[in-house]
Amino acid sequence: MTKIAVQVDDLTVAYNYKPVLWDIDLEIPEGVLMAIVGPNGAGKSTLIKSILGILKPIAGSVTIYGKSYEKQRSLVAYVPQKGSVDWDFPTTALDVVMMGTYGSLGWIKRPRQKEKKAALEALEKVGMLPFKNRQISQLSGGQQQRIFLARALVQDASIYFMDEPFQGVDATTEIAIINILKELRKAGKTVIVVHHDLQTVPEYFDWVTFLNVKKIATGPVKDIFNDDNLTKTYGINYKVSIQE
């Protein structure tokens, strides 16, 4: 039996009165490439942020390989939504990727040659090495996304959470990113992605979670990615043709 990488129990999150997530139970097995899908406002980003401890849930608990997130931080990497930061910040691509090493460095200690080498390797992996000294505002949207991905790769984690990594990127970047994600899975990592494009779910992912405030379904794409679950999640009579 495969190990459970992430376990969520009875998770409820609310910003005000209305719950954004209601009583979520979720088990994510190790080594899957999982999409979280659902309509706008379904709580997809909130779920990730709650798992990562950025948001405080009202009730429920989250464990990473059986222990609390605080204890397992070093096993987890995060790619936030590209729009969540100010890209006019005065810094370079390499510098942003270096931030991925800050967690293992801890307080006060500065990144050194070893960290720089790791950052350069990550830039190479996402094909951004020629842009390492570029001011980040001078990068295209797809390039900025790759920089964020590289920053997570530097963390060298076991579990990767990504919030809409395909948002606003062109086809070339999308393919480049999905190839990296598939490589991560091949290396035994667990990758969890908030995803919007339902058409590409069967092609990109092997595991899927349907979310709309409550968890609708979770499991292998081939078993549960069907019209029934899509209709339950999106509320309308949804039909996708899954190409075999």
């Binding site: 990562l52 950025i54 931080r73 930061v85 910040f89 810094t91 931030m99 307080w107």
Partner: peptide
């Protein structure tokens, strides 16, 4: 000088800094 790295990451990406344990 001591907390340069921490200040920088807080300014650029607060949520990310949080997930790293700062």
């Amino acid at each position: 000088l001591l907390f340069w790295k921490e200040f920088k990451i807080l300014l650029f990406d607060k949520d990310y800094a949080k997930t790293l344990g700062f």
